[in-house]
């Protein structure tokens, strides 16, 4: 059903991605698809590398370790943004277009009041991406809690 699955990754917050990474790997194995891990960096030195090239190497290593863990096909793309905080969804959409992704699996936070004036990146992507998008909440909601919300 899917050939290219794009997974946006924030290497600084890997722990909050576990569910989306696992799901993307599972979907890739079932569909024989390739997962594209896309990371966004700026050209200024950051925690994850002094240069975009250094960041790209870290992203490649990350993709390789995911392949080893889950046994699926994977690639990685590091994208440079002038303003990674504000331009994130626009840059990711451009990357999805260039990769020709047919599915995006993306971690996102739980719904909040501020989403009404300040939508999450996941929500912004879902509005604009023409293909399918799977937004994965990191914290599973139990049935009991669901009735409460």
């Amino acid at each position: 059903m899917f050939k290219k699955i794009m997974v946006p990754v924030d290497l600084a917050h890997k722990s909050s991605l576990s569910r989306s990474l696992e799901l993307a790997a599972q979907l890739a194995r079932e569909n024989g698809a390739t997962v594209w891990y896309v990371g966004v960096t700026s050209d200024a030195p950051g925690k994850l590398g002094h240069t975009p090239a250094e960041y790209a190497k870290k992203l490649e290593a990350f993709a390789a370790s995911e392949t080893e863990t889950h046994g699926h096909q994977a690639s990685s793309t590091a994208v440079v943004a002038n303003d990674p905080a504000a331009d994130l969804s626009a840059v990711l959409l451009k990357a999805a277009h260039e990769i020709e992704a047919d599915l995006i699996v993306m971690a996102t936070h739980g719904p909040a009041f501020t989403d009404r004036i300040w939508p999450s990146h996941g929500e912004q992507m879902a509005r604009k991406f023409p293909g399918s998008i799977f937004l994965v909440r990191q914290d599973p909601i139990h049935p009991d809690e669901r009735t409460a919300t």
């Binding site: 050209d43 030195p45 950051g46 925690k47 002094h50 240069t51 975009p52 090239a53 790209a56 490649e60 993709a63 390789a64 392949t67 096909q73 994977a74 690639s75 990685s76 793309t77 590091a78 994208v79 440079v80 943004a81 990357a95 260039e98 990769i99």
Partner: peptide, 28 residues
């Protein structure tokens, strides 16, 4: 398997520059 498609915006290799080695990690 890892590869990078064209037009990712990544600048060319930086070549020689005198990087300062410091214990400090950005954002620490």
């Amino acid at each position: 398997m890892t590869d990078t498609p064209p037009d990712t915006g990544i600048p060319e290799p930086e070549g020689v520059s005198d990087v300062i080695e410091t214990e400090y990690e950005i954002g620490q």
